[in-house]
Nucleic acid binder design. Structure first.
Lengths: 240, 240
DNA sequence: AGCTATACGTACGGTGGCGAACGGACTTTC
DNA sequence: GAAAGTCCGTTCGCCACCGTACGTATAGCT
């Protein structure tokens, strides 16, 4: 651990910004710690900030106000929390809270919106980002429908390991089950098989990655599809 | 049938445009007939046009190039085909073809992009539109995971009936099954129950709606969530 | 050291959807 | 008007996942 404080560039979106835009925004980026459970963006309230996670992980819940069972997905250093700041000017129907404590940067929503409206590099980047979100969501529709819990757990774990600096994540079967929308028992069974195969190791809230290639192998292809979509975002933007 | 030729305003996006923008674009909108199977936007090719369906229905396939089983969803007069024209400047990873013949309008992609970059009403509208697409996709992830085929068939049928002028759609169990990613037999069984309950009637490729309230009742709430999201788009924009 | 809460392990019946196969009815073709 | 193709109806065994319940081990508290 060279440096405890993560820089803005550890967020993939910020690091992909054109230098000019980046230096313009830099003084307005406020570094912050986020602790578990903190509500970043309450449902149906006009948001004041947008957030760029670096080491923290947020959890977006869609359909909070609705009748539906809310399903969530995590956003880490690959993305931004608060896309409704530029998509719609009104309030979001989604809610964001911190799942894993860590650091990140916040930026005034109005300032962000102004920069977006300029139509420069930030706009280009964010439009591509939402395009990827749609790709990801489309892929997940397929995934939820046709892949087994084993495969989906692998995908889930891989995404989780991608977001943390080391090879350990701190979470329980219970929470994973809740996030995946399955029984805790199902997670335990699937995780047990992975542990027996020496792919992961875990005990009481700590999960360690042992064999990534095998985990990818046992995962469905959705992981690769989604990951490469995000990877494309970084590369395409870096060309300029 | 008062008028065979549908006007541009029959497309919800076009009708929600501010008058100024609408009149500016109107002369560039080319009315066209679209026939079944026509490929509007080939995968991995730079698109020349964007399309606003009025009476036709297009089918977007995501993940065509990828390994994954492609899953599709329909776009009718509530939307636009070719969002990648403004989201990313590169080629789309999705493909669009015509599922139900009918009319629509096409607009030069470059022109469209230019208008978008102006940052006016068109941009606002389209950003809200993609926000709704994300909402829809998130909802469908839940839906695929936790609702029965019966419920999902109802949702599917309701969306289909929403897009056609009368209460009849022309499609077979086989095609529905393919679109929903389930067995043909499952569709037949579910549809059989609906027919027994006098909710719909069908025979050899024609499906007629008999009792919409009951169909909505037997559907999952996803239909309402998605529909009201799109309805909000039209209203919010009309205020100005 | 013992208690308690938390996290993981295991078992059991029930069911929704799957794959495969086959039969019946209607429509089109020549 | 017979053959062929299309569309729908039904059945059967199978399995992943579910809800429920209860047992066991580890960590933390006092």
């Amino acid at each position: 651990m060279k440096n405890v404080t993560a820089g803005p560039k550890q967020n993939h979106l910020l690091s992909a910004l054109p230098p000019m835009v980046y230096t313009r925004l830099l003084p307005r980026l406020q570094a912050r710690m986020f602790s578990v459970g903190e509500i970043l963006i309450p449902a149906n309230v006009k948001q004041r900030y947008v957030y760029f996670p670096t080491t923290c992980i947020a959890l977006l819940s869609y359909g909070v106000g609705a009748i539906a069972t809310p399903r969530t997905w995590p956003v880490g250093n690959e993305g931004i929390v608060g896309i409704t700041a530029f998509l719609g000017e009104s309030t979001a129907d989604s809610q964001a809270e911190i799942q894993v404590a860590g650091e990140g940067f916040q930026l005034d929503a109005r300032l962000f919106r102004t920069e977006f409206k300029l139509g420069g590099g930030l706009q280009l980047l964010l439009l591509r980002y939402v395009e990827i979100l749609i790709t990801q969501a489309s892929q997940l529709v397929i995934c939820e429908h046709s892949h087994t819990i084993n495969q989906r757990l692998c995908r889930f774990l891989l995404r989780a390991f991608d977001r943390v600096p080391n090879d350990t994540i701190e979470t329980t079967h219970e929470r994973i089950a809740s996030l995946m929308g399955v029984r805790r028992v199902s997670v335990t069974e699937a995780a047990g098989r992975l542990q027996a195969d020496r792919v992961i190791d875990y005990s009481r809230g700590h999960i360690t990655l042992l064999n990534r290639p095998e985990l990818e192998h046992q995962s469905c292809e959705c992981y690769v599809v989604i990951k490469s979509a995000f990877a494309g975002l970084r590369l395409k933007s870096k060309v300029k």
